[in-house]
Nucleic acid binder design. Structure first.
Lengths: 159, 159
DNA sequence: TTCCTAATTAATAATCATTATCATTAACTG
DNA sequence: CAGTTAATGATAATGATTATTAATTAGGAA
């Protein structure tokens, strides 16, 4: 077997699964299934999006990678060390928060009657500097114009 | 105006919005849009699911209610006081965690360069006692039978 | 090495939560 | 009370994710 099996599952290391895992380990971002698909397709042109989803789910279940739900979409992270994330409400940018020892100490002390905690997901929602600057600019422009054409509509994904 | 306006938005308190808010305030669960729809339909039979979604989004944006993403689906909570949630990976049960003062103290101390935190979402994933007992039972049954008919398939929603 | 079997794949259809569109209605402002 | 515009109802569309199925293949056993 080419990797560390965490659970005693009858699991096969396929080329597809390997490439997906290698890709995830090579990046510091938190790609979506779609992004992983686009990347892996370069070396495995016949791979399908469904296969990527299946493997990401499999890898997440065995604990090989982490899933984080951001604005209704799954993002994946091969860094399974304990860390938290900040997400910009405007652009969806994800920021890694390592070394929050204070939080991590608190989390160790959590006890919930009738419940066995496994993983803790901390998501800090806010606004990144870029978006805050953009917002200010837009506000000022709105003051000047007051009435222009239609607004563009786009699908909004909520946090 | 029938309610407290948090933002200076030109907002109208419609019967639909009011009933949705009243329903959310009357329950201690964390209903989905669908559940809210089914409940409110009893007093407003012509209301549509789209209207429920529109209002839940509106109420969440103004801070009147909270949204929590659980296994890919939005749940809503009229209790906006600072508290956290535990979610069972198996059944999706949501447990309120009040009085985690240790965590809350830690959260106040978070500082992220280039980022303005607004809200913090803590989700503890694990397994509730009911599901753990069920899992044990299923395992034992599998040992006895070893081979039966097909498994039922159902759409899985991931955490 | 070769064979066997179940895990996995590619291709594609289906699902389902959520949002967009738009003509119509109704809440608030003056 | 009238004008404006936010909000609604009805419905279609979107998009992320999962199900289905016949064909393939990884990896243990012979």
């Amino acid at each position: 077997m080419l990797w560390e099996v965490l659970y005693l599952k009858k699991t096969r290391m396929t080329n597809q699964r390997l490439k997906i895992l290698e890709y995830l380990r090579s990046v510091k971002t938190h790609p979506t299934a779609e992004t992983v698909y686009e990347a892996v397709k370069k070396t495995l042109p016949t791979i399908t999006l469904a296969t990527v989803y299946r493997n990401l789910n499999h890898l997440a279940e065995t604990g090989e990678i982490n899933r984080l739900l951001v604005r209704g979409v799954s993002h994946f992270d091969a860094d399974t060390s304990c860390h938290q994330h900040a997400v910009c409400k405007e652009c969806g940018r994800i920021i890694d928060l390592h070394k929050n020892t204070l939080i991590q100490e608190s989390l160790k002390k959590i006890r919930i009657p009738g419940f066995k905690p496994r993983t803790v997901c901390i998501m800090i929602h806010g606004i990144c500097d870029k978006c805050e600057i953009n917002n200010k600019k837009r506000k000022e422009q709105r003051k000047k114009k007051k009435k222009t054409g239609k607004k563009k509509t786009k699908r909004l994904l909520r946090s």
